[in-house]
Simulated assay, not measured.
Amino acid sequence: MRALDIRCAYALALVRLRIHPRNMNVMSELFEALGAAARLGTEHYTQQIDEPPMMFRDEPELSEAWHDGWDAGLEKALTTADAQLPPPDAAAAGISCPA
């Protein structure tokens, strides 16, 4: 889902939630839109895009979800990079880093 699709799905879910505040299907639609915003944030991290889409900037929940996804992409990259590095004392012990 691209930013405009996500924003539209989010807006529709908010309107439907005001009409049917206890409907679990509507709440699910809202959470799906927020999840899509987070996934887009992760995708944007891998593409080195560091600003949320313009469509998200005036919706705090969408912006926060996008930032959460971007942070998750960063965390994954750091974790992967750390796993590939030898321990600090490995070089002194003559242990080489795997290729």
Rank of each mutant, 00 (worst) to 15 (best):
M24S: 12
L74Q: 07
A9Y: 06
D5S: 13
C97V: 04
G69N: 04
A93T: 08
R39S: 10
A92T: 05
P21E: 13
P21N: 11
H67F: 07
G35R: 00
Y10A: 03
P60M: 05
A93D: 15
A65T: 04
M27K: 00
L12N: 13
G94L: 02
T80H: 07
C97A: 13
L34W: 00
A36E: 08
P60V: 02
P53Q: 10
A36N: 05
N23M: 05
E29A: 09
F31V: 02
F31W: 06
E61W: 01
L74T: 04
E29S: 12
A37E: 08
L78K: 05
P52G: 09
D58V: 08
A37R: 02
D58E: 10
A9R: 08
R57P: 15
T80G: 05
E64P: 01
L85C: 08
I95Q: 04
R39F: 08
G73D: 09
M54A: 15
E61T: 03
R2A: 14
A33H: 00
D71H: 06
L17K: 04
I95Y: 04
G94R: 03
P52L: 07
L30K: 01
I19D: 12
P87R: 00
L74F: 05
R7E: 13
A93R: 11
L40V: 12
L78E: 11
I19L: 11
C97K: 02
P60L: 04
A90H: 08
A13S: 13
L4V: 15
T79K: 13
A91Y: 05
P98N: 12
G69A: 02
P87F: 00
H20V: 09
D5H: 14
P21V: 03
M54P: 13
P52V: 05
A9H: 06
V15L: 13
I49H: 13
L14S: 12
E61P: 03
R2V: 15
A72W: 04
V26K: 05
M27W: 01
A65F: 03
P87W: 00
Y45F: 10
L62Y: 02
E64L: 00
M24D: 15
M1C: 15
R22F: 10
H44E: 14
A93M: 11
A3K: 06
A83F: 02
R39L: 09
E29K: 08
A11T: 15
M24G: 12
M54C: 13
M54E: 15
T46I: 06
L12P: 06
I95D: 06
H67S: 09
G69R: 01
P98S: 14
P52E: 12
E75K: 10
T79D: 11
G41L: 01
P86W: 00
A81I: 00
P53N: 11
P98H: 10
A90F: 05
P86L: 02
V15K: 12
Q48C: 09
L14F: 09
T46D: 12
Y45V: 07
L62C: 05
A92I: 04
L4M: 15
A99I: 07
Y10G: 01
M27Y: 00
D71A: 04
L17H: 04
A9M: 09
G69T: 01
